[in-house]
Design a protein around this nucleic acid. Sequence first.
RNA 1: GGGCCUGUGGCUUAGUCCGGAUAGAGCGCCGGGCUUCUAACCCGGAUGUCGGGGGUUCGAAUCCCUCCAGGCCCGCCA
Length: 554
Amino acid sequence: MYIETHDLIRSVLQEATGEEDVLITGGGEHADLASTVAFSLAKKRRAPPAAIAQELATGLAATLAPRGVTVEATGPYLNFRFGREYLAASIRAALAPGYGALGRQATRVVLEHTSANPNGPLHVGHIRNSIIGDTLARAFKKSGYSTEVQYYVNDMGRQIAIVVWGMDHLGIAEIEGEKPDAYIARVYVEANRRIEADPAITAEVDGLMQLVEKQDPSTVRKFRQVVGRCLDGFRVTLGELATPHDRFVWESDFLRIGDMERVFSRLHRLPQAHDEGVFFLDLNEFGIENRYILRRSDGTSVYAARDLAYHLWKGRNFDRVIDVLGADHKLIGSQLQAALRLIGERPPEIVHFEFVSLPEGSMSTRAGKFVPADDLIAETRRRAFDEVTIRRPELPEEERHAIAESVALAAIRYDIVRISPEKSTVFDWTTALDFERQSGPYIQYAHARACSILEKAGEYREVFAAESSYEQALVRQIAKFPAAVAQAVEELRPHLIATYARELADLFNTFYHFEPVLRAEGETRDARLTLVRAAQNTLKEALETLGIDALRSM
RNA sequence: GGGCCUGUGGCUUAGUCCGGAUAGAGCGCCGGGCUUCUAACCCGGAUGUCGGGGGUUCGAAUCCCUCCAGGCCCGCCA
């Protein structure tokens, strides 16, 4: 109801003022929505803003009253307040399964996230990518977009060649029960150490890269095998984080099927192309001074070349191409966009997020300096299990474990998604393991409380009304859920959903504290139960959009 | 050196794109609340030069300029 009412007010204001932008803002404590259009009209009409506001309020009252909206001028501000009809309709809407959905969209979306190099396990920096990307994908799906989520597998880069070299020369054995990606990391770290000690090894690594480029079958097999093993490890981690991919796209495929060569031939025709043994694009006209190198002087292609082919393929099959990339990829991202523009292709929309570092400095797979996501998950689950055991000792162990897994997932995902992507962060065990206010478990808890009430209530008659200020505040927040999802999708900012869900939980908890539901009687009891049901459904939908289990009991 | 991002109470952070009515939370601190629908909760209190300075505007955390501090990038790596 919020979106509809907002649009209604905008259009009547536009009609009444003749202004395109009618300066609608949130009303804060004063109103549900407000407009400061009187200020901008004051200049044009040479009249005091308060008088203009008063005149507009009087004129609009008759139109808005039948829709349950009251309008009032407070000084120069126009305040719109939504009445009983709005509250009732909002409660009713929030009861529907899938509440928050915005209807089918024709646009097909492909969203790439994570795409970490398969040379070691995913760490707490990588999963910021996964969680931002996955939450965005969920928001797109909720908004009605058909959305495919892809992982772009780097299976022929230098890092992989180094791992393959290590496999061939170091004889490092896999430890019993070790995750394959952790094993790969040990090989990678040791191989890098050897290279540092003996630079001659670099030539051997180069040799491997040339063989892959030439599609030498046994070398290709080695690369694929190493990458496949690492990916098996990634799939476990990504599964535990509930950040699934619909498709893993291997970059070497673009070389094998000839797409990359086709890109090269298109690029060669550009005036910005230079082939001086090394092939590169001059992107100065885009404000990029560095040469955008696509082929090395030894004839091997660079990652960027395969990436261009990949994006061309995505552009052919989807209407919107969205990439989630770390801030360290900003330059390469704009180079990619610029190159695609040069050949007349649609560049991807890129969502960048800033770095996650450790208190002792930035993470590095090569140096073996990182907190693996698997460690974070294991430790958070341990802590969650202890919590559950303290609170619900009567539950069977298996059930406590199941709850702990969901709580741990909630804590991790929420802790990461709540921060705006453009903020760099320092990983902190204390806040990651906090299950209280402004956490995922806190929101799950509000949902579980609502479920508990509904379970005990038995049959009741649906009554759509909100009387007290606590009830009304809760309904007003519930009503905004579809707008929150729409805004997150519009601005590609998933943390808006995190903020929304937390505020919803806050308002539900306050309502819960002050307004008895089961002990109320008659119409009041029915109305509160209906409201609890609406809140529960909205919390559930919001949690699921965040990729968090909406537990019925915890 | 150049480019991008960030700077909001002791700590973490929303709000900044799209300027408006006393800057909103959490942690921590102080004080309250469990024979009452799950206390992973709720209520109250203290804590703010919105990095500094200039400017635009009736009005600036928000826009412009400048300076300072931190992060990231500037590879024939990804």
